[in-house]
Measured scan of single mutants.
Amino acid sequence: MKKYKITVYDEKTGEKHTIEIEMSEEELEELAKKLAEKHNVKVRIEKV
């Protein structure tokens, strides 16, 4: 498992949230996809 920083940005409201999380790359990609689809936000992932 690796550490990642996830930034979620909502273009409508301008809200931006960043968290650090430790998980596998596959789980992370699935999480990012679900966030983007369900909440209509942009998701950026960076390795820490």
Rank of each mutant, 00 (worst) to 15 (best):
K12I: 13
T13N: 05
V48F: 02
E30G: 08
G14F: 04
E15G: 05
K5Y: 06
E29S: 09
A32E: 08
K34E: 07
E26P: 09
L35K: 01
T18C: 08
E26S: 11
L28D: 00
H39T: 12
K2M: 12
E20N: 05
T13P: 00
K38C: 06
E29M: 13
H17N: 06
E11M: 14
K5P: 00
T18Q: 05
V43Y: 02
A32D: 03
K47Q: 15
E22F: 13
L31I: 05
I45F: 05
E11Q: 14
G14T: 02
M23G: 09
T7W: 06
K34F: 13
V41N: 09
L28G: 03
E26R: 08
L35H: 02
K12D: 12
I6H: 00
G14Y: 03
V8R: 00
K16R: 10
E15Q: 10
V41S: 08
E26C: 13
K3H: 05
E26D: 13
I45N: 01
E46R: 04
E37Y: 05
E25A: 07
T7H: 09
E30N: 12
V48G: 04
K3P: 01
H39E: 12
M1Y: 13
T13G: 04
R44K: 13
N40E: 06
D10A: 02
E46P: 01
L35G: 01
E20G: 01
V43G: 01
I21F: 06
R44A: 06
A32F: 14
I19V: 07
K47R: 12
K2P: 03
K47D: 13
E29V: 11
T7N: 02
K2E: 07
R44F: 14
D10M: 04
T18H: 05
E22T: 09
N40I: 05
T18N: 03
K47E: 15
R44C: 14
K2S: 14
E20T: 11
I19Q: 04
E25F: 09
Y9H: 04
E25C: 10
K2T: 11
E37Q: 14
E15M: 12
K34C: 11
V41K: 07
E37P: 03
I19W: 15
E15H: 10
N40L: 07
V43T: 03
L35E: 01
L31N: 01
V41W: 14
E46F: 01
T7V: 07
E15K: 10
K42R: 12
V43E: 01
E20S: 05
M1R: 15
K38I: 11
V8K: 00
H39M: 08
T7S: 05
K3W: 15
T18P: 00
R44S: 14
I6N: 00
I19L: 08
L31V: 07
A32Y: 14
E26A: 11
E46C: 13
M23C: 13
S24V: 08
I21C: 10
A36P: 02
H39Q: 10
T7C: 07
I19C: 14
E11P: 12
I19D: 02
E25R: 07
K42N: 07
K42D: 05
V43L: 03
E25M: 08
K16M: 14
H39S: 12
E26W: 14
V41I: 10
E46Y: 01
V43N: 01
K42Q: 10
K34R: 10
V41R: 07
V8M: 08
E27P: 02
E20D: 05
V43W: 03
L35T: 02
I19M: 11
K3G: 01
E20C: 11
G14W: 04
V41L: 15
E30F: 13
M1I: 09
E37V: 12
K5F: 06
A32S: 10
K47W: 09
E15L: 13
H17M: 12
I6L: 05
K2R: 13
E37A: 13
K38G: 09
I19P: 00
E15I: 13
E27G: 12
E26M: 11
T18A: 04
L31P: 00
V8I: 13
Y4W: 12
S24T: 14
T18M: 07
H39F: 05
M1V: 09
I21R: 05
E30L: 12
M23D: 02
K2F: 15
D10R: 02
N40D: 09
E27H: 08
S24N: 11
K33L: 08
R44G: 04
R44M: 14
N40W: 09
K42C: 14
K33H: 11
T7A: 02
V48A: 06
T18Y: 09
Y9Q: 04
E11N: 08
K5G: 00
E29N: 11
G14M: 04
M23K: 01
I21E: 03
E27Q: 13
K38M: 15
K47M: 15
K47C: 13
K34D: 06
K38A: 09
K33T: 07
I19G: 01
S24Y: 14
E26Q: 10
K2G: 08
I19A: 03
K5H: 05
Y4F: 07
E30M: 13
E37W: 03
I6M: 03
M1F: 12
T13M: 03
K12T: 12
L28S: 04
D10N: 15
K2A: 14
V48T: 06
E22Y: 15
E27N: 07
M23P: 00
K3N: 04
I45Q: 01
K34Q: 09
M1K: 11
E26G: 10
E30A: 11
A36G: 10
K38N: 14
E11R: 06
T7R: 01
A32I: 15
K12Y: 09
H17C: 14
I19Y: 15
H17I: 12
K2C: 12
G14H: 05
L31Y: 15
M23V: 13
L35W: 11
E11K: 13
K3A: 04
K33G: 06
E27V: 05
V41P: 03
K34G: 06
M23I: 14
I45P: 01
R44Y: 10
E25G: 06
E25D: 12
E30S: 09
E25N: 06
E20L: 13
K16A: 12
E25P: 08
E20P: 01
E46G: 03
L28C: 11
V8T: 07
K12C: 13
I45L: 04
K5R: 15
V41H: 06
I6F: 03
Y4S: 00
V48Y: 02
V41C: 11
I21D: 01
H17T: 10
E15W: 14
E26T: 11
V43Q: 01
Y9L: 07
E30K: 12
M23Y: 03
K33A: 09
E20Q: 05
E27F: 06
H39Y: 05
I21K: 05
N40R: 07
K2I: 12
I45V: 07
T13D: 02
L31F: 14
V8L: 10
M23R: 01
K16G: 08
G14S: 03
T18W: 05
